[in-house]
Design a protein around this nucleic acid. Structure first.
Lengths: 238, 238
DNA sequence: TGTATGCACTTGTATATACAAGCTGGTTGG
DNA sequence: CCAACCAGCTTGTATATACAAGTGCATACA
């Protein structure tokens, strides 16, 4: 037997999907639902509360409960850590560290990490391979303040991503995805032709205290794509 | 004065962030919390329930409530409807319909929309302009079954995206993002050089009943990028 | 006319209580 | 020794009740 609050949720969702109620329409109040379904107000309330949590309804004190607008048609696209992704596909993962040293921030680099020009930064360039084929060049700048031991890590064992997340758990991130033509260095590192388009992901990660790292991730257009699957359905009938 | 269940939530989050409790650790039971904070079990329960909803804790009947693992370090990246995006930037949006007609599905197209080869489909090609500059070529196939009036729409008024979402609300979507070199047709439509890399987003959208549409969105690499900002912090102190 | 008060309705918070159902560990009986 | 059972913990569902607080409307008053 289904719990009663689930039945009420289903009934509300049904009447929305059947078109009986449109976005903006007022839903029966907690007391009305309680009477209609012969349950206590708290049980009716639970049904409404969960639908609000799921984004189906919206409430405001004193006014009532209303059918929500279609939630913004924004799709979410997942970007995962490269090694997890490759391993999950059942392929072999390996990498090669090209560069692992200290640098002094140029004005541009300083702006990215929000530090003064000339600040000492850590810089790594690592190529990631899927089945011996290069699929990502990771060009990363790290603020030593949040990850002082970054340079002494063995990145053949743990990825920069995982290490940084362990010492300074990320709280926010900025992303940008672009299509570019590779520089000579990028083309050589990824073993592609100079006129082969690349997918460039630039990612800036924040921990609680500040900007941890700025990474440029280059992917050969013919060997890599970013994918994702999304599910917006709100008919969760557990 | 803060509600009491908020105080309990804060206390739990604090002790997690202070390192007193690690992922996997057991949290005080509802009855224990009730006694500690001098509230009823239902109030303590509400604190736990909301933290479970937020992904901070996990519960199982008979066992107890536990601190959740750090949620998978997957980043989410937003893709919005092109016209909304342009308007929100304060720029002018316009478009031009290149193609709007019926076609018979090739075997490839049939596979994309999960219909037999030869099925009648709707096909549109629309160029979207930001400040008179082309930023997206939208090449879209639509299953007439879910949107029979698609061809008679005036897409200078409403975008395909918005129209489809109104007649067949989307419940799921697949995405793939790639960097490609444009075909001659794409380069001409977007007014770019043939060697200028393009960002290609292919998106397949589902409604409750089936696959509604398959779209290829081409963006000139030098005029468009996909961006997003994410926030993982779970210290939600409403 | 315009303002103020208060009532009726809504959601929000909080309590006390009851029983159902899942899990664990110990005790009991074969 | 092992299996069955049960007691005692946990979370899950459900009710009845109370008061607080936000909103809108109608009524009463100046």
């Amino acid at each position: 037997m289904q719990p009663r609050y689930i039945k009420i949720k289903s009934a509300i969702i049904d009447s929305i999907e059947a078109g009986k109620m449109k976005p903006g329409d007022k839903v029966d109040s907690e007391n009305q639902l309680a009477e209609i379904f012969k349950v206590s107000r708290m049980t009716a309330r639970r049904a409404l509360t969960e639908l609000v949590d799921e984004g189906v309804l919206a409430r405001s004190q004193g006014l009532g409960t209303f059918v929500n607008d279609h939630r913004p048609m924004s799709s979410l696209l997942e970007i995962r850590s490269i090694d997890d992704e490759i391993l999950q596909r059942g392929h072999t993962y390996s990498n090669q560290v090209l560069t692992q040293l200290k640098v002094k921030a140029t004005s541009e680099q300083g702006a990215w990490l929000d530090v003064p020009t000339g600040t000492e930064l850590f810089h790594t360039c690592i190529v990631h391979y899927e089945n011996e084929l290069p699929v990502q060049l990771e060009d990363r700048l790290v603020n030593p303040q949040w990850a002082p031991d970054y340079l002494t890590q063995d990145f053949s064992q743990t990825t920069a991503n995982h290490y940084l997340n362990s010492v300074a758990p990320l709280t926010q991130a900025d992303h940008a995805i672009e299509a570019i033509l590779p520089t000579q260095y990028v083309a050589k590192s990824l073993a592609i032709e100079p006129n082969q388009p690349c997918l460039q992901v630039s990612r800036r990660t924040y921990s609680a205290k500040g900007i941890v790292s700025y990474a440029l991730l280059f992917h050969p257009g013919n060997r890599y794509r970013i994918g994702g699957h999304l599910d917006f359905s709100h008919s969760i009938r557990s």
